[in-house]
Design a protein around this nucleic acid. Structure first.
Length: 425
RNA sequence: GUGGCCGUAGCUCAGUUGGCAGAGCGUCAGGUUGUGGCCCUGAAUGUCGCGGGUUCAAGUCCCGUCGGUCACCCCA
């Protein structure tokens, strides 16, 4: 077991082969899909002024109160590692002024929240998010949800469920919260201890308490939307109609609550059955933010990548690795070894993955290395081949060996050529 | 921040009422002086997470601590 100093910090992980292949795959897939919807990437700093997050997420939210990594730099400025992606993007949009008024932006990268790790939750975790700035129409909300579901499905997740709700406009939320609170106060004694506390701290959270007795009380309440203005309700109706037009299956969940203050109107979550207690793999909503005196409206989402990968592993178990389009050179003797180095470079410049054991090892060991690397072909160059002026090409999957001169060897390698040098399963 | 379970070889794990540190897989070498995968033989690899305590003796018992995992709070 490695000593402590070799381990990453709690809740942080080194991502490497073989899992990294799945990360690269979903990222590549996502960029492709996002561009089809007209979104372009923005990479904002991981470190921002603390104030940005306090102002945009809300200073009473748990994320701000107890989950942010915050510290002072040498000049005494208060900074924070970003706990989510929207705030940074909004700062960027505010800085661009009118140039960004209809921007469609996406981001992908690490976020930080100082919490106890558990299934699908890390202290450094990764989100893919997209924001449609401006777009003040319910159809924009629906289109963004369609995009989000499209992304998840493109990764192979077929069991996602979309739950949507409305938060109403600013005054609606305050009204609803007050009225729900009054109704629940009458039944205070029947609620679980957590919910009794929530009555004071976060009333809406009572609505999705898992305690059966609380759920029973909640189910007897009028739906949250009944406390909303007519405007909020008709906005939600319009979102639903657009979702139907976009062929996005969804469920209205009047008790759905989301934790960040900047949301108004539509909010939603996407869940997946493989996640256990933390079954939301993605969420989103419409928001109105005020950054440096500029009001920015938009609609956006975030997808938790760790959680998506957990779900993906459950839906699509790892298939046994195929042979890679990789050529392995096996050399006997110094001269063959040097020829090997030359041949390798020549193949690599043609776009073919090629390797050999650069330390001198037995042929048996070289073949074993080729097999372990899942190489497709082995090219053998030994005393006999030097003498005959040929190369021996062995196809590892079949064991078939052929004697070829250099031009015909290169000819046989042609199908392995590829424009990029990335090896994907 | 709170609680349950866990921490022994690169990996997965066994280790009895406290008494010599183990297995499987993997790695390396040989069986085959030029051939991988299957088979056979052999070898290497350990601050038993870390620190303290009890004891003639601690992987084992006690305390602390770090980490993992699951759950709570909350969230992606």
């Amino acid at each position: 077991m490695a000593s402590e100093e070799f381990q990453p910090l709690q809740g942080m992980a080194d991502l490497a082969a073989p899992e990294i292949a799945r990360w690269q795959h979903i990222e590549a897939q996502a960029r492709n899909v996002l561009s089809r919807y007209g979104f372009s990437e923005v990479r904002t700093p991981i470190l921002e002024r603390l104030e940005l997050f306090v102002r945009s997420l809300g200073d009473e939210t748990d994320v701000v109160q107890k989950e942010m990594y915050q510290f002072e730099d040498r000049g005494g400025r208060k900074l924070a590692l970003r706990p989510e992606g929207t705030a940074g993007v909004m700062r960027y949009v505010a800085a661009r002024g009118q140039d960004a008024q209809d921007a469609r932006l996406y981001y992908i990268g690490p976020m930080f929240r100082s919490e106890r790790p558990q299934a699908g939750r890390r202290r450094q975790f990764h989100q893919l998010g997209a924001e449609a700035i401006g777009a003040a129409h319910p159809a924009a909300d629906a289109e963004v949800i369609a995009l989000q579901l499209h992304l998840l499905q493109s990764w192979g997740l077929s069991q996602c469920r979309v739950h949507i709700n409305t938060r109403g406009l600013g005054t609606d939320r305050v009204n609803a919260q007050q009225q729900i609170r009054e109704l629940l106060l009458a039944k205070r004694e029947l609620l679980c201890v957590d919910c009794q506390r929530r009555l004071d701290t976060n009333v809406l959270r009572v609505l999705d308490c898992k305690n059966p007795e609380c759920a029973r009380i909640v189910s007897a309440l009028p739906p949250l939307t009944s406390f909303m203005s007519a405007e909020a309700r008709s906005y939600l109706d319009e979102v639903c109609r657009s979702l139907t037009a976009l062929e996005v299956p969804f469920e209205l969940r009047p008790n759905l609550v989301r934790g960040l203050d900047y949301y108004q109107h539509t909010v939603w979550e996407i869940t997946h059955p493989a996640l256990g207690a933390q079954d939301a793999i993605a969420g989103g909503g419409r928001y109105l933010l005020n950054i440096g005196g500029r009001a920015i409206e938009g609609v956006g989402f975030a997808i938790g990548l760790e959680r998506s990968l957990v779900a993906l592993a459950a839906e699509r178990p790892e298939s046994p690795p195929d042979r890679l389009p990789l050529v392995w050179f096996v050399a006997q003797g110094e001269r063959a070894h040097e020829e090997g180095l030359r041949l390798l470079q020549s193949l690599r410049w043609r776009g073919i993955a090629a390797q050999m054991c650069v330390d001198r090892r037995s042929m048996k060991a070289q073949f074993r290395a080729a097999d372990r690397a899942k190489a497709m072909f082995v090219v053998v160059r030994g005393d006999a081949e030097l003498e005959k002026g040929i190369f021996l090409l062995k196809t590892l999957a079949t064991g078939v060996q052929e004697e070829l001169d250099l031009p015909s060897l290169m000819d046989r390698m042609k199908p392995l050529e590829r424009g990029d040098a990335v090896l994907l399963r």
